[in-house]
């Protein structure tokens, strides 16, 4: 019995002791593990710095680790946060959880994707696209198609309380103003638009022919095309006078009070490199590089060939918090 107790004690100490002899960095990640883990493994191999990662899940609507960072504000455990959209970065900045860091590798990334005081930097972006079923005769080319009679009861959109759909709607609020967006959302509802639980589910519904089109993230759209589903991709609102495509870059940032600041800077530099952007472009998520001239697959358009929605992500983040009660009540009506 004494031996068993001794063995258990040794095991427990081993399990709970931290490996202090090796340089390490702790990163919280909202990007899907299946895409982010290979990048972090490559960083480990190339630098010898051990990465302790904590990944988000779909079930927490990809905000679980952000909320853990908020919970740990007075007791920071993370060095770096890899967010899958800049609005989460803005929320953290406004709560005083970040410190500024301008990476040399941020050079070449358009200014709109870099926070003015360098609290976060965007890289490898998703864009919000229309995924349209192959059998649809008149393909929609604007998000206003959600309110068109031709698509009554034939369109689907992900729950606007969560994820990139919320961010997209908040961006529209900053661009169009409250009245116009509320009118749009009411008309969208009146037109019998279905609400799905996620962008992935919306994409599946369109792929199965249940709905004519859906507004989804580019990774959801490209993956259905790769799976040879009967769908096509439309970059919406590209004409003159139209707002353009909403771009959702990843964002990387350093945590205030990070236990390993030097290793954190190295990881941020690595994530913002052109090589990382190329890897994410050729991964299944098919993310669009923000550096120009980075090699990328042919089924996605380079950022400089897309009309991009011009928004201030700081304002979008503020608006996002402001519109939550409205969106909740809109959903429950």
């Amino acid at each position: 019995m004494k031996r068993v107790i001794l063995l258990c004690t040794v095991l427990m100490i081993t399990a709970c002791s931290s490996q202090k002899e090796q340089q390490s960095v702790t990163v919280y990640v909202s990007e899907d593990q299946v895409f982010s883990e290979p990048i972090l493994k490559d960083f480990e191999k190339e630098t010898g710095i051990k990465v302790n990662a904590l990944y988000d899940t779909e079930e927490s609507k990809s905000t679980g680790v952000m909320n853990r960072l908020i919970a740990e504000k007075n007791n920071p455990r993370a060095d770096v946060y890899w967010a899958n959209e800049p609005v989460r970065a803005e929320v953290l900045r406004q709560k005083g959880i970040l410190i500024p860091y301008l990476s040399p590798n941020a050079k070449g990334i358009p200014e709109v994707f870099i926070q003015k005081a360098h609290y976060w930097t965007g890289f490898s972006a998703r864009v919000r696209l229309l995924l349209v079923g192959e059998g649809v005769k008149h393909k929609p080319d604007s998000i206003l198609a959600y309110t068109a009679k031709a698509y009554k009861d034939r369109a689907v959109i992900a729950n606007p309380l969560f994820g990139t759909t919320t961010t997209h709607i908040a961006a529209l609020f900053t661009l169009w103003g409250d009245t116009k967006v509320k009118t749009f959302l009411e008309a969208l509802k009146q037109n019998g638009t279905a609400i799905s639980t996620s962008n992935g589910e919306s994409a599946d519904f369109v792929a199965k022919g249940r709905y004519a089109f859906a507004l989804v993230d580019s990774d959801d759209a490209v993956s259905r095309v790769h799976q040879k589903k009967p769908v096509s991709i439309v970059y919406p609102d590209q004409k003159k006078g139209e707002p353009g495509v909403f771009v959702v870059p990843n964002a990387v940032m350093m945590i205030k009070g990070a236990p390993n600041p030097k290793a954190a800077q190295k990881l941020i530099d690595y994530l913002l490199s052109r090589e990382t952007e190329q890897k994410l472009a050729f991964a299944d998520c098919a993310q669009i590089p923000l550096h120009s001239g980075v090699k990328m697959p042919q089924d996605i358009k380079p950022i400089d060939q897309i009309k991009v929605m011009q928004v201030d992500y700081e304002q979008v983040a503020q608006k996002l918090v402001e519109i939550q009660p409205y969106l909740k009540s809109w959903l429950e009506q």
Binding site: Y28, Q33, V34, N52, L54, E58, G64, D219, D284
Partner: peptide
């Protein structure tokens, strides 16, 4: 476990769950 695991200490059920988002 999903809520509590320390960074770098994910367990197999958590790993499977996170792979379910876009994993093969």
């Amino acid at each position: 476990t999903m809520l509590l695991y320390p960074p770098g200490s994910d367990t197999l059920p958590v790993y499977i769950f996170t792979q379910m988002a876009n994993g093969k």
